[in-house]
Design a protein around this nucleic acid. Structure first.
Length: 636
DNA sequence: CTAGGGTTAG
């Protein structure tokens, strides 16, 4: 009795000096409490101390202590230590095997997990329902259908397929492997189902990427409710991503799901609110309703790095770079939350388009301090940021010196960077290097190298690459790739060849193709071709105001004011408004934005004075000045 | 006393 009281009191103690007083922990029972304390405090140090006591006192053969220790090490991602504990126990029970397999699963060592399951088959311990559920998940994670079917067979033979959790895991596994028929069969053959069974099915369909299955999902959800199941947080978060952006569902279902959350108070459960909040923010951002996302964000009771990142990313995706950067700072200053690699990847485009090189360099510095330089996605984002901020050398330094495994995006980012700055030769040499190393180019890489060729006038080289991707790499050219070819031919003045290409190219010409032809014909003053290309453009994109504005400018330059007036009227009737273009500059961390003839800036008088001075100096130096574009500024 | 499924920002 006193002993029991003693341990209970010890559990209540939070001061660390009691943890190290080893004498009171010297029984297996108390050692277990010691391990539990290590677990609740998530302390690797305490775990190691407890391990030392277990070893020192000779309890290494206790399966109870060993499995607890093992799972603790696994939770810290130290699977080597887990394996040492596992191997040291001579008489292993099923718990120990399961904990070890689960430990590998938690540290993403899927192959090791499955190998251990195979070894278990050769031992005297038989897999149980827990084992089968775990390895089923393993098979799903590595998308290994053969392994998954093996587990399924084993579950049928042993009868564990009747266990709901085992069947749920099998449903999930089949879904992840893309075997939807198998998935449905397991689901249909279950004699008893719970919410998890429906959720596994729904998540399988929703991640299929196949809109026919996604379309049927709403029916599945209705069936679920007819069968007396209530949607829970898991269900909603599988469904929400289907309701934003290019999803086949549109936003109305998204709002409906939001209402369901509020009505059923799914947002007030412990821990589930952050998650659902993230999904909602993302859904609204992808539907272009970033302010709705913001109100969800503002109402969240607790915000973690996921929530902040979702909100930052929402602003970036909707082009509000300023607000994204403000939030990025607030996250750190107000909530003391450190950004992770995803937050950094999300915020970097804000540097390239808004905050500029200095902010980008700060993030790069942070990346180095936090030792995140081995992350491909982050390095790719840095390469992109540097080249868009005009610092090609820095981009190249990240590309060359970064300790990350280059993927197609890394090559594309660097190649596009060279293209952006008119360095076609460098882009070509890098593209050749990529091919030489055996890395397969994707659509984006090809677009990068072709547009680089186009901008640098390397037409023959570009056409050569275009031919090789179809002949040697068996790639089907996309509309974007074809637009690059049109742009390339057009820029170099080969307008007839560009038109011929459009007529014979393997895909239907889209707005980007006709847009390229418009640019080229403007550049070379070919009025007929301009009108032709514009007609196709407006036919394909009747709602894009840019097309009307550029067509109207074309007619204005030939003084066809009647046509101009007609076009302006048409735009007004359609309710089309073009967002005015603007320029900006960052000085001392503050970004100043300017529109045409803008006098809103407090120092605008001074700014225009400086502009006049510059124009005066330019004239003096004998530069030809084209006032067609800039006259509105000086005339103000 | 130890072990399992369905969700999460690029």
């Amino acid at each position: 009795m006193t002993f029991f009281l003693l341990t209970r009191n010890l559990l209540a103690l939070k001061t660390s000096r009691y943890y190290t007083s080893a004498t009171v922990f010297d029984s297996p029972f108390n050692l277990l409490h010691f391990l539990n304390l290590s677990s609740t405090h998530e302390s690797l140090r305490l775990t190691k101390q407890a391990h030392a006591r277990v070893f020192f006192l000779g309890f290494t053969q206790s399966p109870f202590l060993a499995s607890k220790l093992l799972s603790l090490y696994a939770s810290f991602g130290h699977s080597t230590e887990s394996k040492i504990v596992f191997d040291s126990v001579k008489d292993k029970n099923v718990y120990l095997w399961n904990t070890m397999i689960n430990g590998y699963l938690k540290s993403y060592s899927y192959v090791e997990a499955f190998d251990l399951f195979c070894k278990m088959g050769g031992s005297n311990v038989k897999p149980d329902d827990f084992t089968l559920a775990t390895v089923s998940k393993v098979a799903g994670e590595i998308r290994d259908l053969v392994a998954g079917k093996l587990v399924h067979c084993h579950s049928i033979k042993t009868g564990f397929v009747l266990d709901i959790v085992v069947s749920n895991s099998l449903i999930s596994m089949y879904g992840k492997c893309g075997e939807f028929e198998g998935m449905k069969n397991v689901f249909d053959e279950m004699c008893e189902r719970n919410v998890g069974s429906w959720n596994a099915l729904i998540s399988g369909y929703s991640n299929s990427g196949d809109w026919r299955m996604v379309k049927n999902l709403w029916e599945v959800v209705k069936n679920m409710q007819l069968n007396g199941m209530k949607l829970d947080g898991f269900t909603i978060s599988s469904l929400l991503p289907l309701s934003g952006g290019e999803g086949t569902w549109g936003c109305s279902y998204g709002r409906e799901l939001h209402c369901y959350i509020l009505k059923n108070e799914l947002d007030s459960g412990i821990g589930s609110d952050v998650h659902l909040g993230c999904c909602l923010i993302d859904m609204y951002s992808k539907s272009g309703k970033v302010s709705m996302g913001r109100s969800v964000f503002d109402r969240m009771g607790f915000r973690n790095v996921y929530a902040w990142t979702a909100m930052i990313n929402g602003y970036i995706e909707n082009g509000d770079f300023e607000e994204a950067l403000i939030l990025f700072q607030k996250m750190q200053l107000n909530d003391g939350i450190e950004p992770n690699k995803v937050s950094l990847v999300s915020v970097l485009p804000g540097c390239s388009s808004y905050a500029g090189l200095v902010a980008g360099k700060q993030i790069h510095g942070y990346t180095i301090r936090k030792e995140l330089t081995s992350d491909v996605a982050l390095c790719n984002a840095l390469i992109d940021m540097y080249s868009k901020c005009g610092s090609l050398n820095s981009a190249r330094r990240v590309f060359d010196k970064g300790l990350f495994r280059k993927d197609a995006i890394s090559w594309s980012s660097m190649i596009c960077g060279y293209g952006l700055h008119g360095k076609g030769e460098e882009a070509i040499s890098l593209y050749n290097q990529m091919l030489l190393l055996g890395d397969k180019p994707d659509m984006i890489t090809v677009v990068g190298v072709l547009s680089a060729c186009g901008r640098s006038g390397l037409v023959n080289e570009g056409l050569h690459f275009y031919n090789t991707i179809t002949n040697e790499y068996g790639m089907k050219p996309t509309v974007e790739i074809c637009a690059c070819v049109v742009d390339m031919l057009g820029r170099s003045g080969q307008l007839d060849q560009a038109l011929d290409f459009i007529e014979t190219m393997p895909v239907e010409p889209g707005p980007s193709v006709w847009g390229a032809l418009v640019n080229a014909s403007v550049m070379h003053g070919n009025i007929e071709l301009q009108e032709l290309a514009h007609r196709f453009l407006i036919h394909l994109e009747p709602e894009n105001p840019s097309n009307f504005v550029s067509l109207s400018n074309l007619h204005a330059s030939s003084k066809r004011w009647d046509v101009v007036a007609g076009l302006r009227k048409m735009m007004k009737e359609k309710g089309l408004k073009k967002a005015p273009g603007c320029s900006w500059i960052s000085i001392n961390g503050k970004t100043h934005c300017f529109y045409v003839a803008d006098k809103a800036h407090p120092l605008s008088a001074l700014i225009y004075e400086m502009l006049d001075d510059l124009i005066f100096i330019m004239k003096g130096a004998g530069y030809p000045i084209d006032f067609k574009e800039s006259s509105p500024i000086t005339s103000c």
